[in-house]
């Protein structure tokens, strides 16, 4: 059973570049076409179950827009994104 995680995207920074969308291993990210950031971008958001909190989205994010959380379990102790 993979760890459960989630992300929080800061609209101030997200530019909708989709690098995280392409990099996300469980493919749970997409741009939110219903919303615009103050700069006019569609921000990224989680569209389905399956986020593991692996933080690869944050690792590839050029704008440090993503905060990552992961449920603390014995199987998945947190590691820093940059490793």
């Amino acid at each position: 059973m993979p760890a459960k995680g989630t992300i929080e995207v800061n609209d101030l920074y997200c530019k909708g570049c989709e690098l995280c969308v392409a990099a996300c291993p469980p493919q749970v990210l997409a741009l939110d076409m219903e919303r615009l950031t103050p700069k006019g971008y569609h921000p990224v958001h989680i569209v389905k179950e399956g986020c593991t909190g692996c933080a690869i989205c944050a690792l590839v994010c050029p704008d440090a827009a993503i905060t990552v959380y992961r449920e603390v379990t014995k199987a998945a102790a947190p590691v820093a994104a940059g490793g």
């Binding site: 800061n10 933080a55 944050a58 690792l59 993503i66 994104a81």
Partner: peptide, 11 residues
């Protein structure tokens, strides 16, 4: 999930 003890990465 969004509680400090679960924080993996932040700006």
């Amino acid at each position: 999930l969004m509680v400090p003890e679960n924080l993996v990465y932040e700006r």
